[in-house]
Structure formats: C-alpha cells, structure tokens
Simulated scan of single mutants.
Amino acid sequence: MQVQEAARVSFGFADIDWSKPWFAQFAARGERWQRGALRGYAELLAEMNADAGAMQQRTGRGQRLAFIAQDDLPPGAAYEAHIAATGCVPTRHNLHDFFNGSMWFAFPRIKAALNARQSAAIDVLGIGPNRGGVRDTLTLFDENALLFACADPALSAALRGFDWQTLLVARRDAWGARCEVRCFGHALLEKLIAPFKACTGHAWIVDVPSEYFGWNAAARDAWLDESVSTALLGTEALTSRMFAPLPVLGIPGWYAENESAAFYDDTSVFRTGRRSR
C-alpha cells in the first residue's frame, strides 16, 4: 500500500507541465519545489520553508509563515485558526497543498487577507457544520478563483453577462492588451493537471488602469495582490455572486483548440445567462 501511495504522489508531481499557461506564472519557484517533492515529503517542506525564511512572509495576523507536516496540526485545531495563531501552514505531500503553498508566494497579501477573514469568522462563530456565507465565499476564492484583470468595462460586462462571443471571439485581440487572467485557486490548479473542457474557474474581476498592460509580470502581480487583498478585507458582505464563471480552456492563447470559433458553440460549457455583481 505504501508503494502504491508513493507511486501515486510521484506521478502527480511529475505530471506538472510548467509550459502550460496556468502553471507558467509559478514555474521559477515551482520547478524547484517539484524536484523536492519528488525526492520526498521532508524535502518538499524544506524547500518551502527555505523560501518562507528568505522572503519573511507573514500570515493574516502577522505571524511568520512556515510550513509543517499535516500530522503536526494539533487534534481539534481549526486549520485557518492555527495558521493565524502560529503562522504554520499544515501541508500534505500532495498537489493540492503544493499549489496552496505556491499561492503564499505568488500572492502573499491575498492569502494573508483570506486567512485573516477566515480566522476572524472562526473567532465569532466557531467551527460547525455551517460555515456561513462569508466563509463559504472565502473558501471558494481560495480553492477556485481566477483573477480577471481588465481595463475595458465592456469586456468585464461581457464576462458578467455570459457574452462569450464578445469576450472570447469578437474581442479576442484584447487579451493581453486590455484583459488577462491569473490562476489563484489551488484546487483549480490541481484539476488543471489533467485539463478538460468544462473545467471552470470563479473569476474575480479586477479593474486595472490601462498602463497595467505595459508593466512586467512581477509588477502586475504585485498590483493585483495589493488591490484584491484590500477588497477582500474591506468588503463586509462577501458573496458568491461577486464571481463570474469562466471556462479556463476558453481563454484565448491557453488552449490550441479554442483557435476555432466553433469551440465556443458547446452550450453545455459556454452557457447563456445573466447575472449581476
């Protein structure tokens, strides 16, 4: 059984294709972590903690970030509350937690904001079968969010309105010049190891200035990190209605088959509908 489990874990880590656009943004650090993960659990934690120490990351209540084995989480302790109180992120030797750890470095302010809001809600409501709407929304963001950076209100409106023909076909040339996407949700990234057409993220729309698209990737990520974290901390009534569904493989430039306009004719994936933010 242990041999089978080791083979399954090894295959998962070995199967990350860093050339894919949804992974490429994390490749510089991710490839090194991947090598550690393939060597073993302790080696992965060592790589993660070396980066945490060097970059002096902080959690939602200002604790120094560190990564610990899942078994080191005290019995009965709530995951988010433990991170907030100690700075220690319980981490398993799997892809899900690998990508979760990556987000603490790609978007540290957003992760800290999510942790701060989650732990504050736990302080008030405790742990129970019903987490409440705000915690559900925070979890949805953490697990499945896409950051849709956009400098054109018409494109944001098209996304909110399920107007796929405008967003993904007619205005295809706007991608990279007036809008773009960053993956954030670690469960979404795990699913994209083996992508499928219906794989859909929850897009959080971020209005950006036009000059954003002249900045390098690091400056864009820093701007998104600051803007989104501020919104998460400053918006009291967070709800799932603040997201818009976006099928990941429909993003222009992210999947060869979507070069054909017929790709978007599949209404089981590119559904019609209307929603308000």
Rank of each mutant, 00 (worst) to 15 (best):
A37I: 05
A37F: 05
A37C: 11
A37K: 01
A37M: 07
L38V: 08
L38H: 04
R39I: 10
R39N: 06
R39A: 12
R39E: 12
R39P: 00
R39H: 08
G40D: 06
G40S: 07
G40W: 04
G40M: 01
G40I: 03
Y41D: 12
Y41M: 09
Y41R: 12
Y41A: 07
A42C: 04
E43F: 01
E43Q: 11
E43M: 02
E43W: 00
L44C: 10
L44Y: 05
L44H: 08
L45W: 09
L45Y: 06
A46K: 10
A46W: 01
A46R: 08
A46G: 08
E47N: 02
E47D: 14
E47I: 04
M48P: 01
M48F: 12
M48E: 03
N49T: 05
A50T: 13
A50S: 11
A50P: 01
D51H: 03
D51I: 01
A52D: 03
A52H: 01
A52Q: 01
G53P: 01
G53A: 11
G53S: 07
G53M: 05
G53R: 06
A54N: 04
A54P: 00
A54W: 01
A54G: 05
M55E: 15
M55K: 12
M55G: 05
M55A: 14
Q56M: 12
Q56F: 06
Q56H: 12
Q56C: 11
Q57L: 15
R58S: 12
R58A: 13
R58K: 15
T59V: 11
T59Y: 03
G60C: 07
G60V: 08
R61E: 12
R61A: 11
R61L: 14
G62D: 10
G62H: 09
Q63V: 05
Q63W: 06
R64E: 13
R64I: 03
L65Q: 00
L65C: 04
L65W: 00
A66S: 15
A66W: 02
A66C: 12
A66F: 02
A66I: 00
A66R: 15
A66E: 06
A66N: 03
F67K: 04
F67A: 03
F67N: 02
I68S: 03
I68G: 01
I68V: 15
I68L: 10
I68C: 09
I68K: 06
I68R: 00
A69W: 04
A69V: 04
Q70L: 14
Q70C: 07
Q70R: 15
D71T: 14
D71I: 09
D71E: 15
D71A: 15
D71P: 00
D72G: 03
D72K: 14
D72N: 13
D72M: 13
D72F: 09
L73R: 09
L73S: 07
L73E: 09
P74R: 07
P74L: 12
P74M: 10
P74F: 10
P75N: 06
P75G: 07
P75L: 12
P75D: 15
P75S: 13
G76N: 10
G76Y: 09
G76F: 09
G76H: 11
G76A: 13
